[in-house]
Write a protein that binds this DNA or RNA. Sequence first.
DNA 1: AATTCCAGAGAACAGTTGTTAACTGCATGG
DNA 2: CCATGCAGTTAACAACTGTTCTCTGGAATT
Lengths: 212, 212
Amino acid sequence: MSHTLGIRQAQKQKTRQALLDAALGLLEEQSLSSLGLREVTRAVGVAPTAFYRHFRSTADLGVALVEEALGSLHPMIRTTVSTTGDREERVVRTIDLIARHVDGYPAHVRFIARERHGGVQPVREAIRGQLTRFAQEVKDELAKDPVSEGWSEDDLLMLAHLYVDQMLSTASLFLEALEGPEEERPARTREVAQLATRQMRLIGLGRHHWLD
Amino acid sequence: MSHTLGIRQAQKQKTRQALLDAALGLLEEQSLSSLGLREVTRAVGVAPTAFYRHFRSTADLGVALVEEALGSLHPMIRTTVSTTGDREERVVRTIDLIARHVDGYPAHVRFIARERHGGVQPVREAIRGQLTRFAQEVKDELAKDPVSEGWSEDDLLMLAHLYVDQMLSTASLFLEALEGPEEERPARTREVAQLATRQMRLIGLGRHHWLD
DNA sequence: AATTCCAGAGAACAGTTGTTAACTGCATGG
DNA sequence: CCATGCAGTTAACAACTGTTCTCTGGAATT
């Protein structure tokens, strides 16, 4: 299916990716709304005008970054929620998976957390769209669980949103631990994991008694 | 107690407040990290250099805004959590109070939501400090409730953080409803209130069965 | 082999930025 | 009443920004 693209297209995609990577790096210490196009091209080592061959503006680049950061996450979410096993075990595995993801893609996580409520409207909307999709998918998985018998669609979606928010908040806490002083890192990471685990457990308890 | 300050100090505080207000306005469509000092002074109608009489930098101004947005909120939080009455009634009253606050100070709410994970470290830390204080205060109020008998300090704090996060997330949703198209506003506001109410209710359920 | 296409370079533009220095005028305290 | 303090002004600076137009070299097409 996938056609091997020519030297030309390949080189273009390479610089495009370089721009995205450079931007993600620069966004560690600032917000998208203050990211300059010249700043990005300088970091890559291309002329400022080359930027326009790939993006209309930095806002446009931001939307592309949302796709990169969240687009490939859907299968992971689905499998996470639907993994079998003990209730407690599932919670622990989910938290662990979040921790692993933050470890593997810290810049992506920071970008999403930062720009979700950031100053660039199209990016905010792109993130909101992806998170809504996540909530829908989580809802679909929750619906399969026998615990969800008798639940209304609205209530399932309500719970799904709560889970999605909780996951994001947890990811952000893991990131803070990762960025803090190195010697405190293991301890802080454990603390965050424990906090998140108990919060998820409490939400799970609420879920089981919802229909009382 | 409060000494009536001279004409001089009064005028100074007046421009200082004007700078804060102008900044808050400008931050509706951008992040703090892209807010320029000249931009702020221009909006107020003073010379750029006058800025330095009040703040070292825009980051410094940001920290002052955190104080303004969250500093006066502590008594409200305390009384909210500790209000008596039916369990369901308390939830509804809390959500209503959040909605009222967002209505009264939308720019403050947006600022906090935006800069909590924003690109300016000192501001992030100032917000984190205030939210930690909130969590502590919520914990203290929760501890007084007979439902909390047998709870460990850690678990109380865990729940308090969950409540604080939930409040912030709800405030942000109310804000989105407020900023959306005018004709959808009442409906969206009702939907958000209903969603938030059920999420709080579910967390409350988890709380009641925590020690099972 | 000749032609078209197009990613990236280069130069120039008007405007913007933060920061400095020296100033002015007025409220303040002696 | 007079000298001091200090909020705010004015002017100038080097550095930076996004965007335009023109150009070039080499891959792609014929």
